[in-house]
Amino acid sequence: MIYYIASIAVMLIGLYAVLVKKNLIKIVIGLSLMDAGTHLLLVAIGFIKGGTAPIFSEPGLTADAMVDPVPQALVLTAIVIGLAVTAVALALVIRIYAQHKTLDIRKISSLKW
């Protein structure tokens, strides 16, 4: 249960950073924290007490003593997607900095109304 609380906490901290922090890079950090929180949540859902990793390395392991593999597969994909989105976001930040010379989100709102 505490896994759920911790992962929700990390997600909310990430969301807090996105909402409140003015620096662009801090916002991207917030976004990646939100992703991290979700990934922990997903894996925690799949955990089964007393289950081992879902790999049949030795002959003795049986299917019902294993942890749920599906969330792990999902998280695998989600982490890489998180990386891809963060990379593009940072590229945008670099270009914004090259042009506006500031990372404060309030100063970069020429496109409005």
Binding site: V18, I27, V85, A89, I96, H100, I108, S110, L111
Partner: peptide, 11 residues
């Protein structure tokens, strides 16, 4: 201002 629009969208 294109990068700025991109950043808003990605955010």
């Amino acid at each position: 201002d294109k990068a700025e629009a991109g950043f808003k969208y990605i955010l």
